[in-house]
Every structure is written in C-alpha cells, then in structure tokens.
Design a binder for these strands. Structure first.
Lengths: 109, 109
DNA sequence: AATAATAATAGGAACTATTACTATTTAAGT
DNA sequence: ACTTAAATAGTAATAGTTCCTATTATTATT
C-alpha cells in the first residue's frame, strides 16, 4: 500500500493483496485497515459514499480533479484557520475533512 | 424540509413525508432529492457514508460537533483560499467540501 | 369531455460498500 | 505436545442507494 501514491479503496487493496495471498478474505482487509486507522498509522478518507485509505499520516487536505479523477494531497487548513474557527464560532477543531473539487494543472493549457 | 435547520437524511425526509403522504415511496424521495440537487435548489453533503441534504444553497462549510452531533453551517472557504489553491497548486477550484470535526460552544465552560 | 401522449409514482428487486458471525486455522506460551 | 488466545476465510447480514416496471396522475389535443 505504501508503494503507491494513490488513495486506494478497500477493494483495490484486497485485489492487490490477493496477488501474494491468494485466499485472503475481504473481511481481513477491512479489519486490518480499521485497526491501522484506529492506531493512527493510516487515515481514512470519505470520498463520496466510499472509503479510501491514505498512508500520509499528517493532517492534510485533498484536491480532486473532476477530469482525471486524481486525488492530490495538499496542506491548506492551518493554525490560522483553526484560530478563526475558534474565535468566530467558538468551535474547538480536532480534525478537518476538506476536499476541493476542480480541475488540476494537467488539464489547463 | 425548509422548516428545519437540521441537515436531514433521505430516510428522515421519507418518514416526515409519510405523515402527509402515507404511501409515498423511498424511491420517490431519492429521485426528487436528486433532481433538486441537480437543479441546484438544494445541496447534497456527504456525511461519512451517508448523504444529507441542505437547503442552504450558498456554498458553505460545516462544523460537526462530536459531542452532540450537531452540523453547523459556516463560511470559511473564500476567494482568498481559492486564489491560494490556484497559485500554489495550479488547481481551478469549482466546489469545496469541508467539514470540521470538533467541539461546539455548547460544551465549553 | 374523451383521447392520446407524457411524466411521475409505488413497490420492490438489485446493487455496493461495509460489518458481523462462526467454524477453522495459526501463533504463542508453558 | 498441549492449552489458550488471537487472527482468518468464508459467508451471511446490513444499510444506503439506485434501478426497474407496471400503474397512476397530469397535461395537451381535438
């Protein structure tokens, strides 16, 4: 999983794992992903209705390109924004899920 | 649906609708929500694995309180951030899905 | 008002991602 | 080797959502 910079789904991981462990079960994949996620070794990201998994442990945001479907890691939400949330809405932010949908640089002439 | 400031699920709407239209079908609810969403009359928000619907048509973000579960409408992503995304990542932002998870002011002494 | 054409609906089946369950296997400790 | 505990495969079950079809409602046409 670390060998890729994509943000794989459980199903993708299941299929990759089958190459080396032919009779691995999908339940095992989900169970282990959940454990890794709970321990903070990976991150679970909600991409619409399905879950993707991210080896990038640092808090970060995503750009999703609507042309090629790429999901790109970026850093946008910072302490400044956290402070604004705190001041303006009296809300203590623990975690942020931000995905920006648009067009990536590959498709701009 | 407009009578509430919550962010209802399809199921909640279905149950509310049944009060007045006892034999309404869940498919009808989904179909009409999809249509309204496509036309831009409501917004679909992805809350984890399930979809919620929002009458607030203006682009906005959400704060989700992990204590009481409240989903609060806020305005955080602005043109400044859009410009940063454009400049830093050469990414043309069309839409943003941002949910900040934390603790709302109701639970801070 | 009767008829034809079109759209919307109920009800349920089908689908997809995920979780739960259980008998069996693997590993660890003694 | 034997016991205990943990992990797994395989499958059933669940939840949210979409798809399908026969039927019903709506609109337009004469």
């Amino acid at each position: 999983m670390e060998s890729t910079n994509i943000h794989p789904t459980a199903d993708w991981i299941f299929n990759q794992a089958k190459i080396n462990i032919p009779n691995i079960s999908l339940g095992t994949v989900y169970r282990n992903l959940k454990q890794l996620s709970d321990e903070g070794d990976i991150r679970t990201i909600h991409d619409g209705a399905i879950a993707r998994y991210d080896c990038n442990k640092d808090r970060h945001d995503h750009l999703r390109c609507k042309v090629c479907g790429d999901l790109i890691d970026v850093q946008l939400f910072d302490d400044d924004l956290r402070k604004i949330v705190k001041k303006k809405y009296k809300f203590e932010a623990d975690d942020v899920e931000m995905t920006i949908i648009g067009t990536c640089k590959k498709h701009t002439k």
